[in-house]
C-alpha cells in the first residue's frame, strides 16, 4: 500500500507529471529537440486516410473456393444462426482419365452468405472437409442497404484473392501448416 504523502497535493502533482510526460512523448516521438510529429506518436490512426494492417488470422470475411465445394451442406448445417444458403444440382463432369466414365458431381447453383446474420464464429470454415472456405482479413464491405450484405458465390469467390497464406507455428507445435489453394 502506498505511504500517505507528507506534502499535501503531492499525489496530484505526481499524476499531472505523468500526464505531461505522456503528452510530450506523443508530441515529440523522435526526441525533445526534433520537430513535433503528433500523428507519429499517437496510438491511433486517421482511419480512412491510413489503415491498420489486420493480423493474418483476423476474421474479416469468408472466401469461397467454388471448385472445391461439393455442396455437402456441412457448413450450412453447423452454422449456429443458419446464414448459409446452398442449392446445387447433379451434373456429369468429364472423366479424370482418358477413356473413363464421366463423373457425377454436384454443381453449385447458389451459395449465399448472409453477413447481416453472420456471427463470425468460424465454425463453417472449421468443419469444411474439402478446403473450400477460408478466412480473409478484409473488412471493408459495409453497405448502405442491408440486403446487399448477402454475398453470392461470385462475390465470395472474389474474396479468395485476399486470403493470406497460413502462418508458421510457434516452436514445439506438431501442427502441419495448411496451404491455401490458389
Amino acid at each position: 500500500m502506498p505511504q500517505k504523502p507528507d506534502i499535501p497535493g503531492k499525489g496530484i502533482v505526481k499524476g499531472l507529471g505523468i500526464t505531461m510526460k505522456t503528452a510530450l512523448e506523443t508530441m515529440f516521438p523522435d526526441g525533445p529537440l526534433k520537430p513535433p510529429s503528433p500523428s507519429k506518436g499517437a496510438a491511433t490512426v486517421q482511419y480512412p486516410h491510413e489503415k491498420e494492417e489486420p493480423v493474418t488470422r483476423a476474421r474479416g470475411v469468408i472466401a469461397l473456393k467454388i471448385e472445391n465445394c461439393t455442396a455437402c451442406m456441412l457448413c450450412a448445417r453447423e452454422c449456429p444462426d443458419w446464414c448459409i444458403y446452398i442449392e446445387a444440382h447433379k451434373t456429369l463432369a468429364p472423366p479424370r482419365r482418358e477413356g473413363g466414365k464421366p463423373r457425377s458431381v454436384n454443381e453449385l447453383d447458389r451459395f449465399d452468405f448472409d453477413y447481416s446474420l453472420c456471427m463470425y464464429c468460424g465454425i463453417c470454415v472449421e468443419v469444411c472437409p474439402f478446403e473450400a472456405l477460408f478466412w480473409s482479413p478484409e473488412y471493408e464491405y459495409s453497405e448502405t442497404r442491408i440486403g446487399d450484405l448477402l454475398h453470392d458465390k461470385s462475390r465470395l469467390d472474389q474474396w479468395m484473392d485476399t486470403v493470406p497464406d497460413f502462418e508458421q507455428y510457434e516452436a514445439g507445435s506438431e501442427m502441419k501448416v495448411k496451404k491455401v489453394p490458389r
Binding site: R57, M119, Y120, C121, G122, I123, Y169, E170, M175
Partner: peptide, 19 residues
C-alpha cells in the same frame, strides 16, 4: 482471429496453435 469473441476453445483442445 477475434478481438472480443475468440470462439477458440474446443472440446478436447484448441482450434489452432500459436503463430
Amino acid at each position: 482471429g477475434g478481438r472480443f469473441h475468440p470462439n477458440f476453445d474446443r472440446i478436447g483442445g484448441l482450434l489452432d496453435d500459436l503463430p
